[in-house]
Each structure stands twice: as structure tokens, then as C-alpha cells.
Design a protein around this nucleic acid. Structure first.
Lengths: 248, 248
DNA sequence: ACAATGACTTGATCAAGATCAAGCGCCTGC
DNA sequence: GCAGGCGCTTGATCTTGATCAAGTCATTGT
């Protein structure tokens, strides 16, 4: 496991080192709508990037903005302020796509970036070539629209959490989300799973402080709803009781 | 001005009473990407609906879900819980489009609806015919994608507000949004404008209580940043000072 | 082995905003 | 004109979660 000082120097970036055929999210990602012949065009414009935990991939600035697929690992979509306050506006799991905003009139204030929460692999597509491919393959654009509309629903669900839920509801809701996504991606073996975020990141995602998150998790453990070994490894969860606590 | 009991009975619904040519948002809405000939196809599937303040247009249930354009008035996108807690996840101004989620696998929990904040006119498009038109006119789908990506950005901005901003920052941010949108839509004469939401709705949009919103507005008035006549009519705002208070 | 560091936990205290409680002004209907 | 209701304001008090402050535990470097 690389330490963080070392990590800053080992970003690797490669151009299409292997065909999409070998990609672990070939079918579950956006790419799933393209045939093996069609996907060659996508492969031609793609390049991969590997990030270590804590490293950033910046989405700001409209000159070099790219679309991206998460091919492995977990990423945080982060928005920050100068004064240190930050908000994680989304988690990205393998097969998730990052669309950014498509318009060329993008405002410069879009201070949003992707931060690796684990060892992370991205498949990047430069903006303009990708847009041309969407014109050529309408199914691609259609799938992106469908996913974006879904993301909008998810973002609005989160607005309800941030605007109206209590601390214990927030933590329960967050854990449910993680458990569900982990199960969908097969990262959830019978021996449990690792929480993708530490306490500080959870706090930044659900709009609380580290201490409040910690206390709420302790309470869930005392109440037997959550069984853990150490601070990150979840052994078991009682989803029914968690759903009760999540409210709504 | 109809009282709310009367209002419940005068929903009017008509099928394409007049061509899109006469529509006040013909060019600023999604429809702007279609030529006069092409728009006839859209007109053929459209029907209009007029709502009085407080009336709902439900978006739940995947059988009859429709896409919609706001042609005049202002609407609230509302998500609610059984226990009375409610969150306004967006405001809709003339020319805004309501996409909902496009997938046919829509979850039934999508308890979201549109509530008229003023006299409101919607132009509704049944789901399936509209999707067919998007296939026929790719520019339509492209424009919808562009708008949806923008809405996602806006929703995530709001997540930062709800997760990390203080009460006074929230109120200032909200007022800035309203002023800017009002100016864009020409609803902002030199004699000022009416706030589109009452205190309770503002509270539900920015995640506060009525009382806190009221106190913050009183403070802005005392500080001379906001000049009002009565509780709803804004005579003038100092945008620079409001931006300072909005933070970030 | 041992200091140092960083992630987490726990307790004590504080404060921002919620809740409770009047009261005001305005409109509406009788 | 007047009672009633509604939306808003303002004040007093309370609560939730933030802040401040140790302390634990595991890991890492010397």
C-alpha cells in the first residue's frame, strides 16, 4: 500500500492499452449499448488513467473537459469552497459515467472534481470526439440521457436527505446506499465489505461532522443493527432495521 | 383571485388549442431546436393544462408519466414524506422542461410532483410519442440531454447549499437565484417583482423553518440589502452585498 | 522498541437554528 | 363593521448537532 507522499507521483496514464473486450464494465457501462464493431470507434478515442487514493482528477475548465467511465474502484465527486467546507455530491462505482455539463457555455465556477476513494481506474473520452460519436450512434446518446435523468433523481433524493433528515436518518440512509451498491457490484462477499469512505468523507457526503457520524455509527453498533470489525470493515447489517431508521 | 376551495375545481385541460407558433416560449424552450415544419409533429401530441396556485400535477406512477414544458407561471418541484416534512427540489420557470426519469424501470417510490406557485400553464407530452419524436429529431434529444446535464449541476449546487451553508447564506443564495431568473424572464420590471414563493415554501426549498427564513429576511432589510414593500414585493436588491452574504 | 502520526471515539460544552407561543396586519366573507 | 383565517414577524426557550478537548488504537518510521 503506497503512502500518500509516494502516491502523488505514480499517476499512470496510457492510451488504449487493451481493447474494450477485456474491460470489466464492458456491458454494465454506457458502452453496453454498442456492438463489438461499434465499440472500436470508442476505443480509438479512449485513454485510461489510474489514480491512487486521495488523488484528484480535475473536471474544471472547459478547454480539456472530458467524459469518463469508472472501470474499477470507487470515486468521490467533490465540490469545495475556499474556506475548507466541502460537499461530496456523489459516489461513483465501477460502470458509472461522468458527464459533466455538455454545453459549451460552461460556467467557470464549476469547481468540481473527482477524488479517488480507493485505487481507481478511469476510462476517459475527450469531449468533442465523444460528442461526434453520440451523433453517429444515437443509442449512446440515448443511454447517456437515461443515466443522466436517473442521476438527477438520485441527486434530488439526496437534497431531501440534506434538507430534511436528522443525523441518525442520514447515517442510516447512507449505509443503505452503500450496502445496495456494494451488492450490485459484487463487492459484497459473505465475509462483509469495507466501507468505501472514512468518517470525514461520510460527513462531507451527508452534511454532518466527523464526530456526529462516529456517534451515530456507535449507536447503530450498540443497537445491533450494524456489526463491524474495526472502523471500516462491515461484517453484517440488518437492512430492515436500517430502513426504519432511514425514515421516509 | 380564487380561494383554494374553488381552485380545486377549475383545472382546465385542452388539446392543442392553438399552434406552437403562438407559444410564448416557442424559442427559449426545448422546442426551439425544431423548425416550424418539424414542430407540427410535436404539436400533434401535445395537450395543455392550466393550474391555479396550490394545485398539483402528479408525476408519480409510471403508466401515465409525461414530459412537460412550462409555458407560463412558476412551479415547484416537490418531494414529500408521509410525516409532513417536505423538500422543494427545484423551481420551474417558463421554458423549463420536466423530464422525470426516462427509464421504464422507474421505481414506484418516486414521490415527486409539480405544484403551481402561481397561475401556471403546462404543455404536456405523453411519454412514448415524445420518445419516438426524439428518435426522429436527434436535435431534440440532444437539447434535452444538454438541459438535463445542466439541471444536474444545479441540483448539486443546491446540495452544497443544503449540506454546508448557514441560514443567512442560504437565504441570500436563494434570493440571488430568484433575482437572476426573474431578470432572465423579463418578470423584473423597474418597479421590482413579486417573490414567487411564500416563507413556508422558501423554507422547504432551502432546508430551514419559516421562522428562520423570516428572521433572515428581516435582517437583510434592516441592513439595507433588500428593500421591500410588504412581505412579497421586492423593490430593490443590492446584488453585490447579497453575493457576499451568499458565501463561496 | 518507541515516538509520531492519523483515523476514530467519547465526553463536555456551546450555539445555530428549531420549536413554542404570542401578536400583527390584511384580506374575505357574513 | 366585525369575526375568522392566513401569512408573516418577533420573542423566549429548548434541542440537535457543532465545536472543543482528550484519549484510544493501529500503523509507520527511526
Amino acid at each position: 500500500m503506497p503512502n500518500s507522499k509516494l502516491a502523488k507521483h505514480n499517476v499512470r496514464e496510457t492510451r488504449a492499452p487493451q481493447p474494450c473486450a477485456a474491460c470489466s464494465v464492458r456491458n454494465s457501462s454506457l458502452c453496453g449499448v454498442l456492438s463489438d464493431e461499434e465499440i472500436a470507434d470508442l476505443n480509438a478515442i479512449a485513454h485510461r488513467k489510474v489514480l491512487s487514493p486521495g488523488q484528484f482528477h480535475v473536471l474544471e475548465g472547459d478547454k480539456s473537459r472530458e467524459f469518463a467511465n469508472v472501470t474499477s474502484g470507487i470515486a468521490k465527486l467533490v465540490r469545495g469552497a475556499e474556506d475548507g467546507r466541502t460537499q461530496i455530491v456523489g459516489l461513483l462505482f465501477p460502470s458509472d459515467f461522468i458527464g459533466g455539463s455538455i454545453g459549451d457555455t460552461g460556467n467557470p465556477l464549476e469547481r468540481q472534481s473527482i477524488e479517488a476513494a480507493s485505487e481507481l481506474e478511469l476510462c476517459l473520452f475527450p469531449r468533442e470526439p465523444f460528442k461526434k460519436l453520440m451523433i453517429r450512434y444515437p443509442a449512446l446518446e440515448n443511454k447517456l440521457l437515461e443515466r443522466t435523468l436517473n442521476e438527477l433523481q438520485v441527486a434530488r433524493d439526496w437534497m431531501v436527505l440534506l434538507g430534511r433528515k436528522t443525523a441518525s436518518e442520514r447515517v442510516a440512509t447512507f449505509l443503505l446506499h452503500v450496502v445496495n451498491r456494494m451488492q450490485n457490484h459484487g463487492c459484497h462477499s459473505s465475509i462483509g465489505f469495507e466501507l468505501p469512505l472514512g468518517r470525514a468523507d461520510m460527513a462531507d457526503h451527508i452534511g454532518l461532522t466527523i464526530e456526529t457520524v462516529s456517534r451515530q455509527i456507535s449507536k447503530l453498533r450498540k443497537d445491533g443493527i450494524l456489526i463491524m470489525e474495526g472502523a471500516r470493515h462491515v461484517v453484517d447489517v440488518n437492512k430492515e432495521r436500517l430502513e426504519e431508521r432511514a425514515g421516509f
